[in-house]
Amino acid sequence: MVWSESVPRFWRERARKYRLVGGRCRKCNSIVYPHRSVCPHCGAENMEPIELPRRGKVVTFSVVRHPPRGFEGKEPFLVAVIELENGARVLSQLVDVHPEDVKEGMEVVAVFRRYREQAPNGIIEYGIKFRPLK
């Protein structure tokens, strides 16, 4: 696919993906991930970028047993909605834990990991995942 092997597309997101750069709405105080120019909650065009806290807890999660393209051979793996300390929510992978040991409310901390390779000879896309704090 043309779109899954686009280098500029990954490159322009690097700060948001590497450093959890979210956006805080100066009007309604919502904090969203990733950062963007318009608040999805109140529509204000008044967002400021902020680095989100690295700790949070699991809101909900699932185990991917049939991987999508780009994640073949990695299954089973965990995906989760994480609520960070300031209330922002991110969708991410949970790593370094067996699926049966994951619980809602579990405390987690951000780690820097590989997500996918665009091709065996393509670029490697890195980003933030979460692991159990304890």
Binding site: V95, D96, V111, F112, R113, R114, Y115, I124, K129
Partner: peptide, 16 residues
């Protein structure tokens, strides 16, 4: 290392 770890990701964690 985990499936998603390499010398680069480990370096980052130590450096951070």
């Amino acid at each position: 290392p985990g499936l998603d770890e390499d010398s680069l990701t480990m370096a980052f964690e130590a450096a951070r």
